[in-house]
Simulated assay, not measured.
Amino acid sequence: MTHRKEWRQLRQLLQWMLMVIAVVAVIFGIRVILGLFLENNSITGNSMAPTLQPGERIVSVKTRTLHRNDIVILHGPDDPKRLYIKRVIGMPGDTVQVTNEKLVINGQPVAQPYLKPAFMAAAVKLWAKQHQQVAEGVAFTTDFSLTSLAATGAARVPAGQYFVLGDNRRVSYDSRNFGFVKQRGIVAVVKWRYWPLNRMGGID
């Protein structure tokens, strides 16, 4: 009788251990599968303010299909070990320029609803204060064209490459500095903010 009881207890223990192993395997498998398609990132720096703020956490989808205005995670063209987060502005074949805060692509004005006038004014004022300059006359986005930028120096965005900018143009380090971004250098497209909870939701 004692042996039967011990065997029953041993069998229950083995069943419990197998269940734990199975659960761990499933969780591990799910994480691996999700890792093939999703990125989980935390925002550092202010280059995408006010759209994305430092400390916020986001989920991005790994894809090779990109559209204008997508917010993307990318390997720095100047430092592949670093990840940057920027907005796709210029698609392959596009001409891109900014004149008097107006974005012009292929000769046509393009709306920038993600640029908030109140934030732009505050960002210019802060930058001017930090650099001991008068805010009047300081642009949020300094005028440029692809040919005027030393980092690009081309009339159009090359095939298989993209021109990216940070939303906080006054401080962003982006294609104006490091040039075009090759498609293979783009890791994922940002889709969802899950932290903080009061700002949870899709991202445009």
Rank of each mutant, 00 (worst) to 15 (best):
N177Q: 14
P196T: 07
L36Y: 05
G202C: 01
I89C: 13
G90R: 03
D70W: 01
S145A: 04
M48Q: 10
V61I: 15
Q132I: 04
P80G: 07
M120T: 02
T147F: 00
V96Y: 08
F144H: 06
V32A: 10
M1R: 12
F178Y: 15
A139C: 02
Q183T: 08
N46Y: 11
F37I: 04
K125R: 14
H67G: 03
W16Q: 10
R184K: 12
G90H: 04
A122T: 11
Q12E: 06
I43W: 02
N41P: 07
E39N: 11
S145D: 12
G107T: 02
D94N: 12
V190C: 04
V104M: 00
R87P: 10
A151W: 00
A121L: 10
G137E: 01
K81P: 00
F163L: 07
V134E: 12
A49T: 15
L74I: 07
K129R: 08
P54Q: 13
Y84I: 03
S172D: 12
G166V: 04
P77W: 09
D167C: 05
P50V: 09
R156S: 03
R31M: 15
V124E: 05
A139V: 00
R68F: 07
Q12N: 14
I43P: 07
H3C: 03
L36Q: 10
Q53Y: 13
V181E: 14
A118Y: 04
P196G: 09
S172H: 08
V32S: 11
T2I: 13
L103Q: 11
Y114C: 08
G153Y: 07
G160Q: 03
V59A: 03
Y84E: 06
A150F: 06
I33V: 15
F119W: 00
T99V: 12
T142Y: 05
I30M: 14
N168I: 04
A139N: 13
K182Q: 13
V96Q: 06
L197N: 03
A123S: 13
Q161P: 00
G179W: 00
P117A: 13
V189C: 07
I89A: 08
A128V: 03
V59L: 07
D143R: 05
Q133A: 12
R170T: 06
V104N: 13
I58E: 05
P109V: 10
I33Y: 11
A49F: 08
A22D: 12
E136Y: 02
T44Q: 14
T147N: 14
K5I: 09
F180Y: 09
N177R: 01
I105Y: 05
L18Y: 08
L66I: 15
V26M: 13
F144R: 03
L146G: 05
M91G: 08
Y173P: 01
G202N: 10
Q108L: 11
V96K: 07
G107P: 09
Q112M: 06
T44G: 14
V59E: 09
L126A: 14
Q97L: 10
F180W: 08
G166W: 11
F178C: 02
V96F: 04
P50T: 10
G160I: 12
A139D: 09
A122W: 03
I33F: 11
P80E: 09
T44N: 15
Y84H: 09
T95M: 06
Q15K: 15
L103E: 02
R64H: 09
A155E: 14
V96R: 02
G76H: 10
S47F: 03
H75L: 06
